[in-house]
Amino acid sequence: MFTGIVEEIGLVLSIKDVDKSKVIKIKCKKVIEDIDIGDSICTNGVCLTATKLGKDYFIADVMMESLKLSNISKLKEGDSVNLERALSVNGRLNGHIVSGHIDGMGTIIGAENHGNSTVIKVECSNELLQYMVCKGSVTLDGTSLTISSLKENYFEVSIIPHTKDESIIFKKNIGQAINIECDMLLKYIKRLMDFSTYKSNENNITLNLLKENGFI
């Protein structure tokens, strides 16, 4: 579990193809200070398991599903990535609940300066947009952001200077792919709403019954 607050920008040292997967080596410092082999590191929003740790790097395997859904497959040596360690039990949840399981990718289609902030426009499928609400949360390349505007085929987020300095979002160009993880709570709500009727062994639980008893 993560918060979407980027701790460090890492550098891709190498990325190799290995039997329908990839092995990635990332240079970093802060995120490996207190972790062990087998711990999770959120990399551009993708939860990866550290399989080897060095003095200033970690190595992780990237499975086919992650390659299919994320821009990890597009990374190359010398690229920058957002990094975050898993949330500790006594940590503050400064962003929102992030699983590190990417729902899909969007495309950056615009960027406009608005005084002290910059508005980024991201185009994506309706399948992803259905899990978004204006002023709700979304994770882009592992960064927790607030949706400032929601349109028919894209959404906007406002980037403050601190986020600009501490993440890679401004290293991306118009037309580049960006990883998207939608709000986990909205995904659960949508899943629940899709079940208009649920049959248990003894009772029929309907949508109206759940509403009447305060579950939704």
Score class of each variant (00 low, 15 high):
residue 92 R to E: 10
residue 57 Y to A: 05
residue 88 S to I: 06
residue 172 K to S: 05
residue 4 G to I: 06
residue 145 L to K: 00
residue 58 F to E: 02
residue 147 I to F: 07
residue 32 I to H: 01
residue 212 E to V: 08
residue 185 L to C: 05
residue 174 I to Q: 06
residue 214 G to Q: 10
residue 21 S to K: 14
residue 129 L to D: 00
residue 187 K to M: 04
residue 86 A to I: 05
residue 22 K to A: 01
residue 202 E to T: 10
residue 135 K to W: 07
residue 149 S to C: 10
residue 79 D to Q: 04
residue 71 N to T: 09
residue 181 E to I: 03
residue 12 V to Q: 07
residue 112 E to A: 09
residue 172 K to R: 15
residue 166 E to H: 14
residue 190 K to C: 05
residue 10 G to N: 04
residue 198 Y to K: 11
residue 199 K to F: 15
residue 42 C to H: 01
residue 124 C to M: 03
residue 112 E to I: 12
residue 66 S to A: 14
residue 167 S to H: 07
residue 111 A to D: 05
residue 52 K to Y: 06
residue 6 V to C: 01
residue 31 V to H: 00
residue 54 G to I: 02
residue 154 Y to R: 07
residue 97 I to V: 14
residue 214 G to W: 08
residue 170 F to G: 03
residue 186 L to H: 10
residue 91 G to W: 14
residue 201 N to F: 11
residue 142 G to Q: 06
residue 175 G to N: 13
residue 80 S to A: 13
residue 162 H to E: 15
residue 202 E to I: 11
residue 94 N to Q: 13
residue 160 I to D: 06
residue 157 V to A: 06
residue 96 H to T: 04
residue 132 M to F: 15
residue 25 K to R: 13
residue 178 I to F: 01
residue 63 M to P: 02
residue 42 C to T: 06
residue 126 N to M: 07
residue 52 K to A: 08
residue 98 V to T: 02
residue 171 K to F: 13
residue 7 E to R: 12
residue 28 C to T: 07
residue 23 V to I: 14
residue 76 K to F: 10
residue 90 N to H: 15
residue 88 S to V: 05
residue 157 V to Y: 03
residue 115 G to C: 13
residue 127 E to M: 10
residue 135 K to I: 02
residue 41 I to Y: 08
residue 189 I to H: 13
residue 107 T to Y: 05
residue 119 V to S: 11
residue 129 L to Y: 05
residue 64 M to Q: 15
residue 129 L to H: 06
residue 138 V to N: 02
residue 146 T to R: 08
residue 215 F to R: 06
residue 41 I to C: 09
residue 98 V to E: 05
residue 78 G to I: 04
residue 2 F to K: 02
residue 146 T to L: 10
residue 11 L to Y: 11
residue 109 I to E: 01
residue 77 E to G: 09
residue 19 D to P: 06
residue 100 G to Q: 00
residue 14 S to G: 12
residue 39 D to G: 06
residue 168 I to Y: 01
residue 158 S to A: 14
residue 94 N to Y: 12
residue 71 N to F: 03
residue 128 L to T: 03
residue 72 I to G: 00
residue 124 C to V: 03
residue 128 L to G: 00
residue 64 M to T: 11
residue 55 K to M: 13
residue 9 I to K: 07
residue 139 T to W: 08
residue 38 G to S: 08
residue 43 T to A: 08
residue 8 E to Y: 02
residue 190 K to E: 14
residue 38 G to C: 09
residue 41 I to R: 02
residue 44 N to T: 04
residue 156 E to H: 09
residue 113 N to I: 09
residue 100 G to R: 01
residue 197 T to L: 14
residue 121 K to V: 04
residue 175 G to F: 10
residue 107 T to H: 07
residue 26 I to L: 08
residue 115 G to F: 09
residue 163 T to N: 07
residue 5 I to K: 00
residue 36 D to K: 15
residue 184 M to G: 03
residue 216 I to Y: 11
residue 131 Y to M: 00
residue 103 D to Y: 02
residue 78 G to Y: 12
